[in-house]
């Protein structure tokens, strides 16, 4: 399997790490595998956060096949 690159845009409490990080994972990785890799860069808050593309939050069953630009959404508190 080949590697893919996920550009992960950062919000809220993750802003201290910059505007985005790049993550290289194996194509076909699942959500748990991507979050585990991401937590090594951004910390345990990743596990309480959701990954999203520009249109929707990705489901737990999502499989990462291709390089993409995504967002990591920490717990929200608008209003």
């Amino acid at each position: 399997m080949s590697d893919i690159t996920l550009e992960i845009k950062l919000y809220g409490a993750f802003r201290k790490f910059g505007d985005s990080v790049n993550l290289r994972v194996v194509s076909g990785s699942n959500m748990d595998q991507v979050k585990e890799a991401l937590s090594k860069e951004l910390g345990e808050l990743v596990h309480d956060s959701a990954l999203a593309n520009d249109n929707t939050i990705l489901p737990k069953s999502y499989v990462f096949e291709q390089s993409a630009t995504l967002s990591i959404l920490p717990p929200v508190c608008g209003g």
């Binding site: 809220g12 409490a13 802003r15 959500m31 596990h47 309480d48 956060s49 959701a50 990954l51 999203a52 939050i57 990705l58 489901p59 737990k60 959404l73 920490p74 717990p75 929200v76 508190c77």
Partner: peptide, 12 residues
């Protein structure tokens, strides 16, 4: 300080 909130991970 960034405030804590509701996790969206549960909704995914």
């Amino acid at each position: 300080e960034w405030l804590p909130g509701h996790s969206l991970a549960e909704a995914s």
